[in-house]
Protein backbone atom coordinates (compact mmCIF):
# COMPACT_ATOMS: atom_id res chain seq x y z
CA UNK A 1 0.00 0.00 0.00
CA UNK A 2 1.06 3.50 -0.77
CA UNK A 3 2.28 5.29 2.31
CA UNK A 4 1.22 8.83 3.07
CA UNK A 5 4.68 10.29 2.74
CA UNK A 6 5.07 8.71 -0.69
CA UNK A 7 1.66 9.99 -1.66
CA UNK A 8 2.67 13.48 -0.61
CA UNK A 9 5.79 13.39 -2.80
CA UNK A 10 3.77 11.94 -5.64
CA UNK A 11 1.10 14.63 -5.46
CA UNK A 12 3.67 17.38 -5.33
CA UNK A 13 5.60 15.88 -8.23
CA UNK A 14 2.41 15.59 -10.24
CA UNK A 15 1.59 19.26 -9.75
CA UNK A 16 5.15 20.31 -10.54
CA UNK A 17 5.07 18.29 -13.77
CA UNK A 18 1.62 19.68 -14.59
CA UNK A 19 2.85 23.21 -14.04
CA UNK A 20 6.11 22.73 -15.91
CA UNK A 21 4.37 21.14 -18.88
CA UNK A 22 1.32 23.42 -18.82
CA UNK A 23 1.96 24.69 -22.37
CA UNK A 24 1.90 21.07 -23.61
CA UNK A 25 -0.85 19.74 -21.38
CA UNK A 26 -3.34 22.59 -21.39
CA UNK A 27 -5.97 21.96 -24.05
CA UNK A 28 -6.66 25.66 -24.59
CA UNK A 29 -5.17 29.08 -24.07
CA UNK A 30 -5.73 30.07 -20.41
CA UNK A 31 -6.36 33.78 -20.96
CA UNK A 32 -8.38 34.10 -24.14
CA UNK A 33 -11.94 33.14 -24.79
CA UNK A 34 -14.31 32.87 -27.71
CA UNK A 35 -18.02 33.45 -27.98
CA UNK A 36 -18.44 34.02 -24.24
CA UNK A 37 -22.22 34.37 -24.27
CA UNK A 38 -22.47 30.69 -25.26
CA UNK A 39 -19.40 29.19 -23.63
CA UNK A 40 -19.47 30.86 -20.21
CA UNK A 41 -20.10 29.05 -16.91
CA UNK A 42 -20.31 25.56 -18.38
CA UNK A 43 -20.05 22.79 -15.77
CA UNK A 44 -17.32 20.14 -15.87
CA UNK A 45 -17.48 17.63 -18.73
CA UNK A 46 -19.52 19.98 -20.91
CA UNK A 47 -19.35 19.49 -24.63
CA UNK A 48 -19.87 22.22 -27.18
CA UNK A 49 -19.68 22.30 -30.94
CA UNK A 50 -16.99 24.72 -32.09
CA UNK A 51 -17.14 26.44 -35.46
CA UNK A 52 -13.89 28.04 -36.63
CA UNK A 53 -14.22 30.98 -39.02
CA UNK A 54 -11.55 32.05 -41.46
CA UNK A 55 -11.22 35.46 -39.81
CA UNK A 56 -9.83 33.70 -36.78
CA UNK A 57 -12.95 33.78 -34.67
CA UNK A 58 -14.38 30.66 -33.07
CA UNK A 59 -18.09 30.31 -32.36
CA UNK A 60 -19.63 27.83 -29.98
CA UNK A 61 -23.05 26.28 -30.06
CA UNK A 62 -25.08 23.57 -28.37
CA UNK A 63 -26.77 22.50 -31.59
CA UNK A 64 -25.68 22.76 -35.16
CA UNK A 65 -27.44 21.86 -38.36
CA UNK A 66 -26.65 22.31 -42.01
CA UNK A 67 -29.00 24.21 -44.27
CA UNK A 68 -27.84 24.40 -47.87
CA UNK A 69 -24.69 26.54 -48.03
CA UNK A 70 -25.13 27.70 -44.44
CA UNK A 71 -24.64 26.19 -41.04
CA UNK A 72 -27.21 27.14 -38.43
CA UNK A 73 -26.10 27.55 -34.81
CA UNK A 74 -29.12 27.03 -32.60
CA UNK A 75 -28.95 28.18 -29.01
CA UNK A 76 -31.43 29.10 -26.36
CA UNK A 77 -31.28 32.82 -26.84
CA UNK A 78 -30.30 33.17 -30.43
CA UNK A 79 -29.92 31.53 -33.74
CA UNK A 80 -27.02 32.32 -36.04
CA UNK A 81 -26.58 31.43 -39.66
CA UNK A 82 -23.06 31.28 -41.08
CA UNK A 83 -22.27 30.82 -44.80
CA UNK A 84 -20.06 27.79 -45.36
CA UNK A 85 -17.48 29.85 -47.27
CA UNK A 86 -16.68 31.78 -44.09
CA UNK A 87 -15.45 28.66 -42.32
CA UNK A 88 -11.81 27.58 -42.29
CA UNK A 89 -11.00 24.91 -44.82
CA UNK A 90 -10.11 22.00 -42.60
CA UNK A 91 -11.81 20.70 -39.48
CA UNK A 92 -13.98 23.75 -39.24
CA UNK A 93 -16.52 21.98 -37.06
CA UNK A 94 -15.27 20.13 -33.99
CA UNK A 95 -16.64 18.95 -30.69
CA UNK A 96 -14.88 20.47 -27.71
CA UNK A 97 -14.95 18.97 -24.24
CA UNK A 98 -14.33 21.14 -21.18
CA UNK A 99 -13.19 18.63 -18.57
CA UNK A 100 -13.34 21.01 -15.61
CA UNK A 101 -15.87 23.41 -17.11
CA UNK A 102 -15.51 27.09 -18.01
CA UNK A 103 -15.48 30.32 -16.04
CA UNK A 104 -17.64 33.41 -16.44
CA UNK A 105 -15.81 34.43 -19.63
CA UNK A 106 -15.93 30.95 -21.11
CA UNK A 107 -12.25 30.29 -20.38
CA UNK A 108 -11.26 26.68 -19.85
CA UNK A 109 -10.85 25.96 -16.13
CA UNK A 110 -8.52 22.99 -16.70
CA UNK A 111 -6.13 25.06 -18.79
CA UNK A 112 -6.18 27.83 -16.24
CA UNK A 113 -5.60 25.35 -13.42
CA UNK A 114 -2.52 23.96 -15.17
CA UNK A 115 -1.09 27.38 -15.98
CA UNK A 116 -2.04 28.47 -12.47
CA UNK A 117 -0.05 25.56 -11.04
CA UNK A 118 2.93 26.86 -12.98
CA UNK A 119 2.58 30.34 -11.50
CA UNK A 120 1.67 29.34 -7.95
CA UNK A 121 4.35 26.67 -7.62
CA UNK A 122 6.94 28.90 -9.26
CA UNK A 123 6.17 31.53 -6.65
CA UNK A 124 6.44 28.90 -3.90
CA UNK A 125 9.77 27.65 -5.22
CA UNK A 126 11.44 30.97 -5.96
CA UNK A 127 10.26 32.63 -2.76
CA UNK A 128 11.62 29.69 -0.77
CA UNK A 129 14.92 29.96 -2.61
CA UNK A 130 15.10 33.67 -1.82
CA UNK A 131 14.20 32.95 1.80
CA UNK A 132 17.03 30.38 1.95
CA UNK A 133 19.50 32.69 0.23
CA UNK A 134 18.75 35.51 2.64
CA UNK A 135 17.95 33.55 5.78
CA UNK A 136 20.78 31.05 5.77
CA UNK A 137 23.70 33.54 5.59
CA UNK A 138 22.04 35.80 8.16
CA UNK A 139 21.49 32.92 10.53
CA UNK A 140 25.03 31.63 10.03
CA UNK A 141 26.55 35.06 10.46
CA UNK A 142 24.56 35.65 13.62
CA UNK A 143 25.74 32.33 15.05
CA UNK A 144 29.39 32.81 14.20
CA UNK A 145 29.88 36.56 14.08
CA UNK A 146 30.15 37.37 17.77
CA UNK A 147 27.67 38.96 20.14
CA UNK A 148 27.44 42.38 18.44
CA UNK A 149 26.70 40.98 14.98
CA UNK A 150 24.34 38.48 16.52
CA UNK A 151 22.51 41.18 18.46
CA UNK A 152 22.10 43.46 15.45
CA UNK A 153 20.96 40.70 13.10
CA UNK A 154 18.53 39.19 15.55
CA UNK A 155 17.01 42.60 16.31
CA UNK A 156 16.41 42.98 12.56
CA UNK A 157 14.72 39.59 12.57
CA UNK A 158 12.63 40.64 15.58
CA UNK A 159 11.56 43.83 13.83
CA UNK A 160 10.42 41.90 10.77
CA UNK A 161 8.58 39.37 12.92
CA UNK A 162 6.80 42.04 14.94
CA UNK A 163 4.78 43.17 11.92
CA UNK A 164 1.71 41.17 11.03
CA UNK A 165 3.01 39.88 7.69
CA UNK A 166 0.13 41.15 5.61
CA UNK A 167 0.83 44.76 6.63
CA UNK A 168 4.48 44.31 5.80
CA UNK A 169 3.64 42.91 2.38
CA UNK A 170 1.10 45.59 1.57
CA UNK A 171 3.57 48.29 2.52
CA UNK A 172 6.36 46.67 0.51
CA UNK A 173 4.08 46.17 -2.48
CA UNK A 174 3.20 49.85 -2.35
CA UNK A 175 6.89 50.74 -2.18
CA UNK A 176 7.93 48.86 -5.26
CA UNK A 177 6.73 50.54 -8.39
CA UNK A 178 5.08 48.08 -10.70
CA UNK A 179 3.40 44.77 -10.33
CA UNK A 180 3.61 41.27 -11.66
CA UNK A 181 5.27 38.02 -10.85
CA UNK A 182 8.76 39.36 -10.17
CA UNK A 183 7.60 42.02 -7.73
CA UNK A 184 5.39 39.55 -5.92
CA UNK A 185 8.23 37.08 -5.56
CA UNK A 186 10.61 39.72 -4.24
CA UNK A 187 8.04 41.03 -1.77
CA UNK A 188 7.11 37.58 -0.50
CA UNK A 189 10.77 36.57 -0.38
CA UNK A 190 11.63 39.68 1.57
CA UNK A 191 9.10 38.74 4.23
CA UNK A 192 9.62 35.00 4.62
CA UNK A 193 13.31 34.51 5.46
CA UNK A 194 13.12 35.16 9.20
CA UNK A 195 12.09 31.71 10.38
CA UNK A 196 14.87 30.11 8.36
CA UNK A 197 17.50 32.45 9.74
CA UNK A 198 16.40 31.70 13.29
CA UNK A 199 16.53 27.95 12.77
CA UNK A 200 19.91 28.22 11.05
CA UNK A 201 21.30 30.32 13.89
CA UNK A 202 20.06 27.93 16.56
CA UNK A 203 21.41 24.85 14.77
CA UNK A 204 24.79 26.31 14.01
CA UNK A 205 25.26 27.62 17.54
CA UNK A 206 24.59 24.12 18.78
CA UNK A 207 26.94 22.55 16.25
CA UNK A 208 29.87 24.93 16.58
CA UNK A 209 30.66 23.71 20.10
CA UNK A 210 30.60 20.05 19.17
CA UNK A 211 33.76 18.02 19.16
CA UNK A 212 34.24 17.56 15.44
CA UNK A 213 33.91 21.25 14.79
CA UNK A 214 36.32 22.19 17.54
CA UNK A 215 38.71 19.65 16.11
CA UNK A 216 38.46 21.07 12.61
CA UNK A 217 39.00 24.54 13.97
CA UNK A 218 42.04 23.23 15.82
CA UNK A 219 43.42 22.13 12.48
CA UNK A 220 43.35 25.76 11.38
CA UNK A 221 40.15 25.91 9.37
CA UNK A 222 38.76 29.43 8.73
CA UNK A 223 35.20 30.34 9.67
CA UNK A 224 33.89 30.41 6.08
CA UNK A 225 35.40 27.01 5.33
CA UNK A 226 33.97 25.74 8.56
CA UNK A 227 30.51 27.10 7.86
CA UNK A 228 30.30 25.88 4.30
CA UNK A 229 31.99 22.50 4.76
CA UNK A 230 30.77 21.41 8.15
CA UNK A 231 28.20 23.55 9.86
CA UNK A 232 25.64 24.29 7.16
CA UNK A 233 25.49 20.72 5.81
CA UNK A 234 24.77 19.41 9.28
CA UNK A 235 22.26 22.11 10.03
CA UNK A 236 20.49 21.64 6.73
CA UNK A 237 17.76 19.08 7.55
CA UNK A 238 15.76 21.22 10.01
CA UNK A 239 16.25 24.18 7.72
CA UNK A 240 14.73 22.20 4.88
CA UNK A 241 11.73 21.30 7.07
CA UNK A 242 11.28 24.97 7.71
CA UNK A 243 11.61 25.66 3.98
CA UNK A 244 8.92 23.10 3.10
CA UNK A 245 6.53 24.67 5.60
CA UNK A 246 7.50 28.10 4.32
CA UNK A 247 6.71 27.09 0.74
CA UNK A 248 3.25 25.96 1.83
CA UNK A 249 2.71 29.29 3.56
CA UNK A 250 3.80 31.20 0.46
CA UNK A 251 1.29 29.40 -1.75
CA UNK A 252 -1.39 30.36 0.78
CA UNK A 253 -0.12 33.92 1.02
CA UNK A 254 -0.47 34.37 -2.73
CA UNK A 255 -4.13 33.41 -2.41
CA UNK A 256 -4.67 35.86 0.45
CA UNK A 257 -2.98 38.63 -1.52
CA UNK A 258 -5.17 37.89 -4.54
CA UNK A 259 -8.14 38.49 -2.29
CA UNK A 260 -7.08 42.06 -1.63
CA UNK A 261 -6.02 42.56 -5.23
CA UNK A 262 -2.27 42.41 -4.71
CA UNK A 263 -1.63 38.91 -6.07
CA UNK A 264 -0.95 37.88 -9.65
CA UNK A 265 -2.90 40.21 -11.89
CA UNK A 266 -5.58 38.73 -14.13
CA UNK A 267 -5.97 37.56 -16.85
CA UNK A 268 -2.79 35.58 -16.02
CA UNK A 269 -4.08 32.72 -13.87
CA UNK A 270 -2.76 31.74 -10.46
CA UNK A 271 -4.58 29.48 -8.05
CA UNK A 272 -5.09 32.43 -5.75
CA UNK A 273 -6.68 34.74 -8.28
CA UNK A 274 -8.77 31.89 -9.72
CA UNK A 275 -10.21 31.23 -6.27
CA UNK A 276 -10.85 34.90 -5.73
CA UNK A 277 -12.37 35.28 -9.18
CA UNK A 278 -14.77 32.39 -8.63
CA UNK A 279 -15.74 32.98 -5.03
CA UNK A 280 -18.93 34.84 -5.95
CA UNK A 281 -20.30 31.73 -7.59
CA UNK A 282 -18.72 29.26 -5.21
CA UNK A 283 -22.01 27.52 -4.63
CA UNK A 284 -23.54 27.84 -8.10
CA UNK A 285 -20.58 27.65 -10.51
CA UNK A 286 -18.59 25.76 -7.88
CA UNK A 287 -16.04 24.42 -10.35
CA UNK A 288 -14.47 27.81 -11.05
CA UNK A 289 -13.12 28.33 -7.52
CA UNK A 290 -13.56 24.74 -6.34
CA UNK A 291 -10.83 23.06 -8.38
CA UNK A 292 -8.11 25.60 -7.63
CA UNK A 293 -9.09 25.51 -3.94
CA UNK A 294 -8.74 21.74 -3.99
CA UNK A 295 -5.38 21.97 -5.75
CA UNK A 296 -4.21 24.54 -3.22
CA UNK A 297 -5.27 22.48 -0.21
CA UNK A 298 -3.73 19.29 -1.57
CA UNK A 299 -0.45 21.04 -2.32
CA UNK A 300 -0.27 22.68 1.09
CA UNK A 301 -1.09 19.38 2.81
CA UNK A 302 1.53 17.56 0.73
CA UNK A 303 4.19 20.10 1.66
CA UNK A 304 3.37 19.92 5.33
CA UNK A 305 3.29 16.12 5.20
CA UNK A 306 6.75 16.19 3.63
CA UNK A 307 7.95 18.47 6.41
CA UNK A 308 6.41 16.09 8.93
CA UNK A 309 8.14 13.00 7.52
CA UNK A 310 11.45 14.84 7.39
CA UNK A 311 10.99 15.73 11.03
CA UNK A 312 10.30 12.15 12.03
CA UNK A 313 13.49 10.97 10.44
CA UNK A 314 15.62 13.45 12.28
CA UNK A 315 16.42 13.99 15.91
CA UNK A 316 13.52 15.53 17.78
CA UNK A 317 13.85 19.18 17.04
CA UNK A 318 11.54 21.93 18.11
CA UNK A 319 10.64 23.99 15.08
CA UNK A 320 10.30 27.67 15.04
CA UNK A 321 6.60 28.12 14.53
Amino acid sequence: MLERKHLAWLVLAAFVVAGACAPLLAPRDPTTYSDPSISRNRPPLSQLVAVDLDDGRRLYTDQLRHDGDHVILEDVERQRSIPLDQLVEHDAITTQTFLLGTDRFGRDVLSRLLWGARVSLLIGLLVTLIALTVGLPIGTLAALGGPVVDGVLMRIVDVFLAFPWIFLIITLAAMIDGSGLAVLIVVLGGTSWMAISRVARAMIRELRDQAFVTATRGLGAGPIYLAVQHLIPHALPPILIQAALGAARVVLAEAALSFIGLGIQPPEPSWGNMINDGRTGLLSAWWVAGFPTLALIVTVLALSEIAETLRHRLTPYRLEP
Binding site: A248, A256, R279, A289, L296, V300, L301
Partner: peptide, 19 residues
Protein backbone atom coordinates in the same frame (compact mmCIF):
# COMPACT_ATOMS: atom_id res chain seq x y z
CA UNK B 1 -5.94 20.91 11.91
CA UNK B 2 -3.98 20.81 8.68
CA UNK B 3 -7.12 21.10 6.59
CA UNK B 4 -8.12 24.36 8.23
CA UNK B 5 -4.58 25.64 7.93
CA UNK B 6 -4.56 24.90 4.20
CA UNK B 7 -8.03 26.27 3.48
CA UNK B 8 -7.91 29.99 2.63
CA UNK B 9 -10.02 31.81 5.22
CA UNK B 10 -12.07 33.70 2.66
CA UNK B 11 -13.21 30.48 1.00
CA UNK B 12 -14.50 29.14 4.31
CA UNK B 13 -16.10 32.52 4.97
CA UNK B 14 -17.89 32.57 1.62
CA UNK B 15 -19.23 29.03 2.08
CA UNK B 16 -20.43 29.65 5.65
CA UNK B 17 -21.98 33.00 4.72
CA UNK B 18 -23.85 31.49 1.79
CA UNK B 19 -25.18 28.48 3.71
Amino acid sequence: SQFFWALPGFVLAVVLLEI
